[in-house]
Write a protein that binds this DNA or RNA. Structure first.
Length: 441
RNA sequence: GUGGUCGUAGUUCAGCUGGUAGAACGCUUGGUUGUGGUCCAGGAGGUCGCGGGUUCAAGUCCCGUCGAUCACCCCA
């Protein structure tokens, strides 16, 4: 009982890992803003009826309770921590609709909480980076293309393993099932979503038992789910299955648009994949899931879709489309495996060495001269032997140590050992050393 | 919530069929009288997750508990 133990599902990073996370988040933020998304923060808690509407009863919501609350005090009893950023956003849009301009696009990067059993890549507290575009009444389909491209843009340029976005359209699948004569297309979709896990035979059996499909219908559903492709030719394969339905045609057109746009804007990133279904039942059109190549067992590191009825006050509906990047799921496993790291564990670029404790005021002034030009500097903790002061910098990855002696101000690059007299008002570190950088494997 | 595995120094681990704890790395001191990284010599650091039981004796066996981890469920 001496040292506190970690809490499963609540990952905490070391400073050098946090540097990586921070830079990734900065990168995402810049990318979202380049596409015109405004930032938003919503409170951590939502009323339980907001969190649980749409029948999301299976969500493991953390409920808020005051420790000293008395049995009869129910004032906080109806609050829970949000488990994603989409539901709070829908609530926010309804609440502030009068002050927002539509179509409205926003990004949100915040922690969310789910009371599920944690394991690799699954946490009880984790960060999501979420983008959504909502409109009033009708949402043009081109936004379903746009959000995919924004995510492609945001993930590109990060030193990550190859990631691929798998896209489907619920209208396509459900239209197909409907055209086949299957009644409960929602349930059929949920069953198809399990295909990868339980295999085709078990899936067929579930379809026959669960939605009264005939063996032939189940077979057709599996054939559809098997179709995938990086270009519009997937649509021909679907049509070749011989099912005709207007909803199916709508879905085919929309999915084709996404795939074609992505193929030219971000080649190799998007693949049409008819077995993507998404368990969440509020999705109504395009659905997206992004996987890390070779790390598919982690599940999707970014997913979302179009939702037409999530935000509705009865009079007005605000259809939207959005994607959430699971920042923690994306980074924590890679950090723990050492596949991502930072060049140093502190922002400090230069350590000012001390000759004597009495020199501290002068050293502070020296440091301040460099800081004034944007160079992160700290002064040595003590006037220990120079070897120790260099070691202090080395252990933290600080690349430069500044000595002041008879020669003047000298900067030592402790990686190469090179030391040279410099002019403090003009000296600059190489651009790549000014701030810590992310290194991959 | 259900099931499997695991829990020994800061870290990674060893400890055979029970005989009151070890290595490597890290940390620290010195060799190196103010410029580190190599090398050498020393040093510190563990109520073996916690509680109970069996035994002359438990890190080792049994039970419980807590924690971690994997699979299921579900999802970012």
């Amino acid at each position: 009982m001496s040292r506190p133990q970690p809490l499963s599902g609540f990952p905490e990073l070391l400073p050098r890992q946090r540097i990586v996370e921070q830079q990734v988040v900065d990168h995402l933020r810049r990318a979202f803003e380049l596409h015109g998304f405004a930032n938003l923060q919503t409170r951590a808690v939502e009323p339980m009826d907001q969190l649980l509407r749409k029948g999301e009863t299976s969500k493991e919501v953390y409920v808020l309770r005051r420790l000293q609350s008395d049995e009869r005090d129910t004032s906080d009893a109806e609050l829970g921590l949000h488990f994603d950023l989409t539901v709070p956003f829908a609530r926010y849009v309804l609440e502030h609709a009068g002050k927002l301009n539509f179509p409205f696009r926003r990004y949100q990067i915040q922690p969310v909480w789910r009371g599920e059993r944690p394991q690799g890549g699954r946490y009880r507290e984790f960060w999501q980076a979420d983008i959504d575009i909502v409109d009033q009444g009708e949402l043009p389909a081109h936004y379903e293309v746009e959000v995919a491209l924004v995510v492609a843009d945001a993930l590109r340029g990060l030193p990550l393993p190859k990631v691929t976005m798998h896209v489907n359209n619920r209208k396509l699948s459900q239209g197909f099932y409907q055209g086949l004569g299957i009644r409960d297309t929602d349930e059929a979709l949920r069953i198809i979503d399990k295909l990868d896990k339980i295999g085709p035979d078990a899936t067929a059996k579930l379809l026959i038992d669960g939605v009264d499909a005939t063996p032939e219908q189940a077979e057709a559903c599996l054939k559809l789910a098997a179709i995938s492709g990086e270009d519009a030719s997937f649509a021909d394969e679907v049509r070749a299955l011989g099912v005709s339905d207007s909803l199916l045609e709508e879905g085919l057109a929309e999915l084709t648009a996404v795939v074609e746009a992505a193929a030219s804007a971000a080649p190799g990133f998007v693949v049409a994949d008819m077995k993507i279904a998404r368990g969440l039942d509020y999705y109504t059109g395009t659905v997206y899931e992004v996987f890390i190549e070779g790390e598919e067992h982690l599940g999707s590191i970014c997913s979302g879709g179009r939702y037409d009825k999530l935000a509705s006050d009865g009079k007005n509906t605000y259809p939207g489309v959005g994607l959430s990047i699971g920042v923690s799921r994306l980074l924590v496993p890679l950090l723990q495996a050492g596949r991502l790291d930072a060049t140093r564990e502190v922002p400090t670029c230069v350590l000012v060495a001390l000759n004597h404790e009495d020199d501290r005021p002068a050293a502070n002034a020296t440091a301040q001269r460099l800081r004034a030009r944007g160079i992160p500097v700290q002064v040595s903790p003590s006037a220990a032997k120079f070897g120790k002061q260099i070691k202090f910098a080395d252990k933290r990855g600080i690349p430069f140590v500044l000595f002041t002696n008879d020669e003047g101000d000298q900067i030592k690059d402790i990686r190469s050992g090179d030391q040279a007299t410099v002019d403090l008002d003009t000296w600059n570190p190489p651009a790549e050393d000014l701030h810590p950088r992310i290194t991959a494997e």
